[in-house]
């Protein structure tokens, strides 16, 4: 369903993600945890291209959503002028490894065949950000409801505009989802009149109104007063039971343990552990995960 291959992300000189490879299956619920600044949000936001990867590829439902990364395709490397120039200095595997490691490819100088192969990969597999975002919903830490629209308008705007469904159908969908998150009585109000927990429940419903296959959550309860955390977690828990694919960044360890199929522990831009919750929380393998868990549990 989601395939992240060799993902790197730099912000200028800051290397935030350093070679992330992660596969997420349909219906899986994955929690990404790790220290502040480890790159959790950046990884999550790469999946719907709110961040543009520096290197690497992301595949969603079999479609490539980033430009192809030549370093991930040996046949492309072999077609490059750089490879041809260096051939003879080492065997194929060593050469490919060296070209990757030293980042030797320079698109403009690699010749027509190299560019044709890359174009071919794009042509066969590429899907634009807009198409991908129809299938991937995102729930933000700060809700990001549209303040000049009512709850109903927040929920019907994108389904009508982006998916092209009728206003009546979108309103019907909105009522059904608001009922599901217990917010139907607020359908006509503006977001500024809602509490944090209520805003987040509406934001979750707004995301679901697009009928996504995958939902990304970036610390959905971190901006909430403690007494409102539970109502939002309950909504997410209920959602987890519906079989939808979810990727969560969260600091709520108990919650992560309860709902997740897998825990991905990220530290300094690399995946240090990827395990089922029981294993991860009882017997973390790495020192860094142990140290982290000691601090937060």
């Amino acid at each position: 369903m989601i395939d992240i291959k060799g993902l790197y992300k730099d912000f200028g000189a800051l290397h935030v993600l350093k070679g992330i490879t992660l596969h997420i299956d349909q219906g899986e619920i994955i929690s990404i945890i790790g220290p502040s600044g480890s790159g959790k949000s950046t990884l999550l936001r790469s999946i719907n291209l709110l961040e543009e990867p520096t290197f690497g590829e992301i595949w969603v439902e079999g479609r490539l959503i980033t430009p192809p990364d030549p370093y991930l395709h040996p046949e492309v490397i072999r077609a490059s002028n750089t490879y041809k120039k260096l051939s003879g200095t080492a065997d194929d595997a060593q050469l490919i490894a060296r070209i990757k490691k030293e980042d030797l490819l320079y698109e403009k100088h690699e010749g027509a065949e190299y560019r044709r192969l890359l174009r071919e990969i794009t042509g066969k597999n590429f899907q634009s950000a807009y198409e991908v975002r129809k299938k991937i919903g995102m729930v933000f830490q700060h809700f990001n409801l549209f303040p000049h629209m009512t709850v109903l308008e927040n929920m019907t705007y994108a389904p009508v505009k982006v998916l092209g469904i009728s206003k009546e159908e979108a309103a019907e969908r909105a009522r059904r989802l608001l009922t599901q998150v217990g917010m139907l009585d607020k359908i006509g109000v503006y977001p500024s009149t809602l509490s944090g927990g209520q805003k987040q429940r509406v934001a979750i419903a707004r995301t679901l109104a697009m009928e996504p296959d995958i939902v990304l959550f970036d610390e959905p309860t971190s901006a909430l007063d403690p007494e409102m955390v539970k109502e939002v977690l309950d909504v997410i828990k209920a959602l987890a039971k519906t079989g939808i694919t979810m990727v969560l960044v969260t600091h709520e360890m108990g919650f992560a343990r309860e709902v997740s199929d897998r825990i991905v522990f990220l530290d300094e831009g690399v995946i240090v552990e990827d395990a089922d919750p029981a294993t991860f929380f009882s017997t973390p393998k790495s020192d860094r995960a142990q140290a982290f868990l000691e601090k937060v549990l």
Partner: peptide, 26 residues
């Protein structure tokens, strides 16, 4: 707030609609 752009983008809204319906009214 950047979050307004991000929410619109995450919902798949194209730039012209985003500006016309989300950003400019605010």
């Amino acid at each position: 707030d950047r979050g307004q752009y991000e929410a619109a983008m995450a919902l798949g809204v194209h730039y012209p609609s985003m500006m016309k319906d989300i950003i400019l009214p605010q």
